[in-house]
Design a protein around this nucleic acid. Structure first.
Lengths: 231, 231
DNA sequence: GTGTGCGAAACTGTATACAATTCTGTGGTC
DNA sequence: GACCACAGAATTGTATACAGTTTCGCACAC
């Protein structure tokens, strides 16, 4: 029953996941022939998938030289954080003024539900998934599909750095930091429930921008982890 | 010297222009064979370009059925207006707090310069270009390339409806409306020069959202113009 | 040792060929 | 007259072939 999807779709999703996780190193040139044998498809659907990923900002395309992994630079990450902030705060504004009570209740219920597993979650990737899910649901309250799709793309592109961030916090034994994530979410959710736009936007903006200062250091750390195979 | 660019690039730009102007009708199925003969390329680069346009939201792709022009619906346009608002207001916030005085001066100078031609411009498409250029320069003050690229894409996707709007205003003999565009720009620019974030954001938001109420009617009008060849 | 030029190999960009699916129109049945 | 079945045509999705660049390595000059 599961529509196995076209070859392009399968290849596209595989490559996107690899790009998200920087399985391709920043600036690395992609060898199409290697990828075809790795993914068992011909170059035609492969290149169609690659072209999509270029349009989505995961890869770049240099005429005559082929496809490259996107760069990983503090500037780039900062730009994406700003973009994320723009999208999320506006979504929040719209959501607070237009979402139904039941939608907001469902959103808050999700937070309640995940609150327990948040502290006990060992897998950092899973933890990040939960955080992203929270933010996507928050944004989803605005009912704007275009906005959500754009946000999703941005989140995917900063995911690696965020993961590095979590690893760092975990290593520093900063259990508190995870709780601070959670409490920040709680503050926003409460403000949403109270339909207090200013309070919610302010809290959310602070929550997102908090990470900005560390970005330069985080990108440096990211590079070091990229080229040292995880134990 | 003009790098003639690859075949894909040329085809891509042509198709994108056609999509922006709804030379493809909303929901229309695109026949690849016809396009190949029209554009004098084989299906391989054609499909690569089409895949890019899907990723950019100009087209959709139905498995087994090929490529279709995007829909044109009030909901879609409203979503894009909201997205535009999110991007522009955030860019404005950032720009006011980070742009150099000389950048702001250059921005204001551009407004001064175009102010004259604004009233006398006969070509509505050209008029719209000028408006878009103003907004892109405004956004450009924030120095965030990702944000600007996203905004550019959004603007392209709502361009047709905005053009219909201008046509309508022109037909109603509403010269005043063009002046109102201009004066709104002036208000924003003055607030930017004064580094008054709240005032600038409020004015810009109002300027953009003003069009929202008319959207349903505008989309209806757009359809009528799409299927009646321009005289 | 360093830099340069050349030629082969590798790779990209595009065209074409083929397989599988979808669409279309005709005929038949109720 | 409306609905369904089916065969042929058209169209999409993928693989392969080919031409034009680029890259890489090696030899050679300085």
């Amino acid at each position: 029953m599961t529509d196995k999807g076209s070859s392009v779709d399968r290849v596209y999703e595989t490559l996107r996941d690899m790009a998200i996780n920087f399985d391709f190193k920043p600036g690395e040139r992609l060898n199409e022939t290697h990828l075809t044998s790795k993914l068992n498809v011909s170059r035609t659907p492969l290149r169609e998938a690659l072209n999509r990923l270029v349009a989505e900002g995961f890869l770049t395309l240099a005429k005559g030289q082929g496809f490259f992994c996107r760069a990983l630079s503090p500037e780039q990450i900062l730009e994406l954080y700003q973009l994320r902030c723009a999208l999320e705060t506006e979504a929040l504004r719209i959501g607070i003024s237009t979402a139904g009570d039941e939608d907001i209740a469902a959103f808050c219920a999700y937070l309640d539900e995940t609150e327990k597993t948040y502290g006990t979650c060992e897998d950092l990737s899973e933890l990040l998934n939960m955080d992203e899910e929270f933010h996507m649901r928050l944004a989803g309250l605005c009912g704007n599909g275009e906005l959500c799709r754009t946000l999703k793309n941005v989140n995917e592109r900063i995911r690696y750095v965020r993961l590095v961030n979590l690893r760092q916090l975990r290593e520093n034994g900063a259990q508190a930091s995870e709780n601070s994530y959670l409490s920040a979410h709680r503050v926003v959710a409460d403000a949403v429930r109270a339909r207090d736009t200013d309070k919610a936007v302010t809290a959310l903006r602070a929550h997102i921008e908090r990470r900005r200062e560390q970005t330069i250091e985080l990108v440096r750390l990211a590079y070091s982890q990229l080229y040292v195979p995880a134990v």
